[in-house]
Design a protein around this nucleic acid. Structure first.
Lengths: 185, 185
DNA sequence: GTCTATACGAAGATAGAC
DNA sequence: GTCTATCTTCGTATAGAC
């Protein structure tokens, strides 16, 4: 029955939104239920591990979404990939009125003992993004190692710029940063 | 009596550490008391506004600490300023075994309704840092506007790299990023 | 100024009916 | 699978003694 998995995926989707906007601690069971409309009685049916499982699955799911996007840049040139990557984040920021950020960064900034593994997940996710971007950046103008350093810098700068954009409620930091990064490509 | 303000400043100091390591929600009254050794009975004496006041004052205080450091770079050259700025953050990371990050970024990643003003504080703090760094970067080789764009990029990249360093428990992201940024100077 | 005790609310989790 | 209690824990805040 497709309906049963429906509630589950809606809960994950709501958890991702909450993770983006309010951080790990903002992903409460009540908030997920309210925002997803899922039946209260089925939370621990779908997530026997409770809130921890819900948060971790939401983080994994959102990380994979972004990973898939980055993977799709494999065949475009470096500048286009950078601009697409940034455009994606600008969309997240603007559509949420600067309330939403990166769910992976949220895992790092808010450490709690009951969510061990969340930091590792963030670390691995960043590695994956860097590897994939490096593949896109690699060409005859630079070595693989140079492409990786460049990719790491792009991820770092974009992540930091997202935080600044949220704080200042403006896309300017991201716009300025991408212009500077383009100079490095 | 210097002793009376002692408990207060110790509480602020503990709150800053907690803000760095566990985020806004990690700054609980109990944790601050445990870590500062301050007497329980005097929390609401020193902070009538309760936890919210404690968190905001801690954030302001830590932001000012970093602002003071950046201001001291006014007379050095751009490359030295960048390296000192990064060295400062590496110290925070390594000494905490990668558990601590930027308290200002923590304000942004974890939004809660009872702490309105925290996002604005973060936005203003980032602006201040960019302005000060831009003053250091400004010289005869570039305009003030160019210096500001450069400074904004430095802050963004360093902030993002800090997040990546914490996630991967390594200073490598910061090292790589600063090498790339040096190319922009 | 600082103590202990306690009220209050929020949130996670479980139990048992349907 | 989903419902409605209910239990428990935790964290903020207050009260009143010292």
């Amino acid at each position: 029955m497709a309906r049963t998995t429906d509630a589950r995926s809606r809960m994950i989707s709501s958890a991702i939104d909450l993770l983006r906007e309010r951080g790990v601690n903002g992903v409460t069971v009540d908030a997920v239920l309210a925002s997803s409309g899922a039946p209260r009685g089925s939370v621990y049916h779908h997530f026997p591990g409770g809130r921890s499982q819900l948060v971790l699955e939401a983080a994994e799911s959102s990380a994979e979404l972004m990973t898939t996007m980055i993977r799709s840049y494999a065949d475009v040139d470096a500048t286009t990939a950078l601009q697409d990557f940034v455009a994606l984040w600008k969309d997240v920021l603007v559509r949420s009125d600067f309330r939403a950020g990166c769910p992976v960064a949220a895992l790092v900034n808010e450490t709690s003992t009951d969510l061990s593994g969340s930091v590792d997940l963030a670390g691995q996710t960043f590695s994956t993004w860097v590897e994939l971007l490096a593949t896109t950046f690699a060409d005859d103008r630079r070595t693989r190692a140079e492409a990786e350093d460049l990719a790491l810098t792009v991820v770092a700068t974009v992540e930091g710029a997202i935080t600044m954009c949220r704080a200042q409620r403006s896309v300017r930091p991201l716009d300025v940063a991408v212009a500077q990064l383009t100079g490095l490509l």
